[in-house]
Simulated assay, not measured.
Amino acid sequence: MSSIDINRRHSLDHDHAREAAEKLAQELSQQFDVNYSWEGDTLQFKRSGVKGHLNVTPDELQVHLELGMMLRPFKSRFEQEINGQLDKLIAQA
Rank of each mutant, 00 (worst) to 15 (best):
Y36T: 08
E39M: 09
L24S: 02
D13E: 07
M69P: 03
K51Y: 14
K46Y: 09
D41Y: 02
L24R: 02
K88E: 13
H14I: 11
L24N: 03
K75V: 03
R9I: 08
G40Q: 04
E79L: 05
E79V: 04
E79F: 05
L65Q: 10
Q62R: 15
E27S: 11
E39G: 07
L71E: 02
V63Y: 01
P58I: 00
G84M: 10
E81K: 12
E79A: 04
R9Y: 13
Q92K: 11
F78E: 06
S37I: 14
N83F: 05
H10F: 01
L86I: 11
E79W: 00
R72S: 10
V34H: 05
D59K: 09
S76H: 08
H64V: 10
D15Q: 13
V50A: 06
M70T: 15
Y36W: 15
D15G: 05
I6A: 07
Q26F: 08
I90D: 02
F78S: 01
L28W: 00
L61W: 09
M1F: 10
F74K: 06
D5G: 09
A93I: 07
L24P: 00
S3N: 12
T57Y: 03
Q44G: 05
L67K: 05
F32S: 06
E19L: 12
H14C: 10
L61V: 13
L67V: 07
L71C: 04
D33Q: 14
R77Y: 09
E66N: 13
G68Q: 09
G40L: 08
G68S: 13
Q30D: 15
M70L: 14
A17W: 04
A21K: 04
L43S: 01
S29E: 05
E79Q: 04
L12T: 08
A17L: 07
R72Y: 08
G40M: 05
H64I: 08
Q44H: 09
A21R: 00
G68T: 11
M1S: 14
E60S: 10
R8E: 12
E60D: 06
D41R: 04
H14G: 04
H16I: 11
I90P: 08
F32M: 10
T57D: 11
D5Y: 12
V56N: 03
E39V: 15
Q62C: 15
R77F: 09
R8Y: 12
P73C: 11
D13C: 06
D5W: 08
D59P: 07
D13P: 01
F32H: 05
D59F: 06
I90W: 03
E66S: 14
E60V: 08
A93T: 11
R8L: 12
A20I: 03
A91F: 02
L12D: 06
G68P: 09
A20M: 00
V34D: 00
F74R: 06
Q62P: 06
Y36G: 03
K23L: 10
H53W: 04
S37Y: 12
L28Y: 07
Q44P: 01
E27L: 13
N83W: 05
N55R: 07
V63A: 01
L24Q: 03
Q31E: 15
M1Y: 13
L61F: 14
S29F: 03
L54Q: 00
T57S: 08
H16C: 10
F32W: 14
N35L: 15
T57E: 10
H16Q: 15
P58C: 02
G68E: 08
S11G: 14
